[in-house]
């Protein structure tokens, strides 16, 4: 047998193996509060994909603090897609391991953020500390629950929402720093992720108020009862844009590029947007947003680009080692 024939045979064996592979498995590495969203979404996508291609796709989920999750992917966790809390954590996959291209955010509509959310307050029924806005959080005696911005994407949105409020109300970075410093003096414990913080507040009974993703707050009220918790919407908050991307290096290696891309595209479909809205994420589709408008309070929302000059700058200034958060929290 000539070498050419052998190579042809090897190729045929390889191709046959590929052609028979009807069961596909994806890993979606996501942040803490999206568990319920992606349970619903994965089932819908699997149905859609089977109808379209005949293939069975199983999507495994991994959840944790967004920063921690990004670190795991950089360290080798074989994520086909990441659906993280913020763009900076996806950027880290490029900066640290070149797992995807630098311009990953331009590949999908809305800067690769298929749904948005914002930051609100979750308080105990009756709102015993009478918390109405950000200023009430810095009062003496108020205990706040929020996760650690070093490991949690939601925590960074919380921090920046408070900063943006203070900047707008009191003017100047010094005033904002002082305000956020006071706020963190009232934070006795930092969980590593948003879901852990919710558990600390809701199930452990710690704190007077939890600064929370809007979707997470709604979920807590739905799960644990409107007779126990209330949502307080502040006057001003931040437009949180969780972002998604295919992890190019992984999908090329696993041969799952097409299905991983379709998985994210489907988030923008009407079905995907409906699922997001049902799970208390603000859909991008205006019609579907209007349909679920009762779930989403109207408030003054600022963007990270407007107030902080984008994630790269905000990350470096506030959350990098030796940044403002370290100054504030270590001083405490």
């Amino acid at each position: 047998m000539k070498l050419k024939s052998l190579l042809s045979l090897l190729a045929a064996v390889a191709l046959t193996g590929t052609a028979l592979a009807k069961d596909i498995e994806l890993l979606n590495v996501s942040y803490d509060p999206t568990r319920e969203l992606y349970v619903d979404y994965n089932a819908a996508f699997a149905k859609y994909w089977q109808a379209k291609t005949g293939d069975t796709v199983t999507v495994k989920q991994s959840h944790g603090g967004s920063g921690k999750q990004a670190r795991s992917v950089i360290d080798g966790l074989q994520a086909d897609v990441v659906t993280l809390a913020l763009a900076a954590d996806v950027d880290a996959l490029y900066e640290n391991a070149k797992l995807l291209p630098k311009d990953w955010q331009k590949r999908l509509p809305n800067n690769s953020a298929p749904y948005t959310s914002t930051i609100v307050f979750l308080v105990r029924k009756g709102n015993p500390q009478n918390i109405k806005d950000w200023d009430d959080l810095v009062k003496s005696g108020v205990t706040i629950v929020t996760p650690n911005p070093k490991t949690s994407g939601g925590a960074r949105w919380n921090y920046l929402a408070a900063w943006g409020y203070a900047l707008k109300k009191y003017g100047g970075d010094d005033k904002a720093k002082e305000f956020v410093g006071k706020l963190y003096k009232n934070v006795p414990v930092l969980d590593s992720g948003a879901r852990g913080a919710t558990t600390t507040f809701v199930q452990r009974g710690i704190g007077d108020v939890a600064i929370s993703w809007e979707n997470e707050a709604y979920l807590a009220v739905k799960e644990f009862g409107a007779d126990k918790f209330e949502i307080v919407v502040p006057s001003v908050s931040i437009l949180a844009e969780p972002t998604v991307s295919v992890v190019d290096k992984v999908v090329k290696k696993k041969g799952t590029e097409a299905v991983a891309k379709a998985y994210l595209d489907y988030l923008y479909s009407d079905a995907g947007q409906e699922i997001a809205a049902r799970n208390f994420y603000r859909p991008r589709n205006a019609g579907i947003l209007a349909k679920y408008s009762a779930n989403f309070a109207k408030l003054d929302l600022f963007t990270i680009d407007d107030v902080f000059g984008g994630w790269t700058k905000a990350q470096k200034t506030h959350f990098a080692d030796g940044g403002i958060f370290d100054e504030i929290y270590l001083k405490k």
Binding site: T143, P188, V189, L190, D191, S192, T200, R204, I206
Partner: peptide
């Protein structure tokens, strides 16, 4: 009661870390 709960949770987080 809050102080006790916070101390317990802080210890848990330390252990988890």
């Amino acid at each position: 009661d809050q102080k006790l709960r916070i101390l317990e949770r802080s210890q848990e987080i330390k252990d988890e870390t």
